[in-house]
Design a protein around this nucleic acid. Structure first.
Length: 243
DNA sequence: GTCATTTGACCGGG
DNA sequence: CCCGGTCAAATGAC
């Protein structure tokens, strides 16, 4: 029984994709729950063919769902498996790999609020070029209020998880393309093994820094980083090519 | 025992 | 037809 087809082809599909985009990216700064940088994504398509004036496949008129795409950096500490905490609890209800992406997309929904009427949904997908960067797409609005729980204990920080490392989105338009960002993985190599207890409804505290500090010191001219990039360049080259 | 997470299958839309 | 998205069920962890 169970002959299943044994899915072993987990890679392949997709061969080339659009590299370099407009250069400008959306970065989410600040964290207060009230402040939310909303950005309306519109696919890349820098220019070139703009198709005819008519006909524009853009989803149906049911765009009621607020599509908020935020880009957050993942803890380059070692366990980038933890999605950026928004201050709300999300319950993963599905995961599927997307064509054109090397990483699967995760679908999250309000943990308990869903039982009520919180249509708030969250989609987390890792970038193809930046495994350290998470593209979180928020859909719907949070009807659940979580502030009620905060102003009671003493430390009612809307966001207990510091996610200031927006460094990832600093894409110098001078760069030719590819490379560099992947170097981040380098850290992963020497990254300590972090075994943070996940699930448990207790609390997760992804420690993020160090890397951030390193990047910060980089300022405009990455000195030490340059070293790494150079070394990695070669390595990545083959790695990316193998695809 | 409960709850969150995981995986598969199904459905819908384009 | 294909891709994307959601639901459903099962399992593991606490």
């Amino acid at each position: 029984m169970s002959d299943r087809s044994m899915y072993h082809d987990h890679k392949q599909q997709q061969q080339q994709q659009q590299q370099q985009q407009s250069g400008l990216e959306f970065m989410v700064r600040g964290l207060s729950g009230s402040t939310g940088e909303i950005k309306m994504p519109l696919m890349d398509a820098p220019d070139s063919n703009k198709a005819s004036s008519s006909s524009q496949r853009q989803r149906k008129r049911s765009d009621e769902a607020n599509k908020i795409v935020k880009r957050v950096a993942a803890p380059q500490m070692g366990n980038l498996d933890l999605p950026p905490e928004d201050g709300f609890t999300w319950r993963k209800y599905g995961q599927k790999e997307i064509l054109g992406s090397r990483y699967p997309r995760s679908y999250y929904r309000c943990t308990h609020q869903k039982l009520y009427e919180c249509p708030a949904k969250k989609q987390v997908q890792r970038l193809d070029h930046d495994p350290f960067t998470f593209e979180v797409t928020y859909r719907g609005t949070h009807t659940c209020h979580m502030s009620s729980t905060a102003p009671s204990a003493g430390a009612p920080p809307p966001e207990q998880i510091p996610v200031p490392p927006t460094t990832t989105t600093m894409q110098p338009p001078s760069l030719p393309s590819t490379t560099h960002w992947l170097s981040m993985q380098f850290f992963h190599d020497l990254g300590g093994v972090y075994t943070a207890g996940s699930s448990g409804g207790g609390g997760r505290f992804p420690v993020v820094d160090m890397a951030d500090a390193m990047f910060n010191s980089g300022s405009s001219s990455s000195n030490s980083l340059d070293l790494i990039f150079s070394s990695m360049d070669d390595k990545w080259d083959s790695e990316e090519k193998k695809d």
